[in-house]
């Protein structure tokens, strides 16, 4: 069976000190070619100092339909935020 070039996700660090950010995707036969293609497609104007590529099939993504169960537990835990705690106005540096 004929195999097409697989899809890769591209992450670029725009400068040192910043995290890698998802830039888009690219087709390539292997990881090395994916890096080169990502360089040509996503960093033609000095947009990056470092690139990660990962084959798209290796990414596990959450399903937005389950956002309720997945993220709801964080919603009623107001005590995780500093404003939950009452302090007298005179207290400084806290």
């Amino acid at each position: 069976m004929k195999k097409n070039w697989p899809l890769w996700e591209v992450f670029v660090r725009s400068k040192n000190g910043l995290e890698h950010r998802h830039f888009g995707s690219i087709h390539a036969a292997d990881a090395e070619m994916a890096l080169e293609n990502a360089r040509d497609v996503y960093t033609r104007r000095n947009e990056g100092v470092s690139i990660w590529v990962v084959e798209s099939k290796n990414i596990t993504a959450s399903n937005p339909e389950n956002n309720g169960e997945l993220f709801e537990p964080a919603q009623d835990k107001v005590y995780r935020h500093p404003t939950f705690y009452t302090l007298p106005d005179e207290v400084k540096h806290m």
């Binding site: 070039w5 036969a29 070619m33």
Partner: peptide, 11 residues
């Protein structure tokens, strides 16, 4: 395109 896939598989 085919040659690139064949090379990738070999590697």
């Amino acid at each position: 395109r085919d040659a690139a896939m064949a090379y990738a598989k070999k590697q």
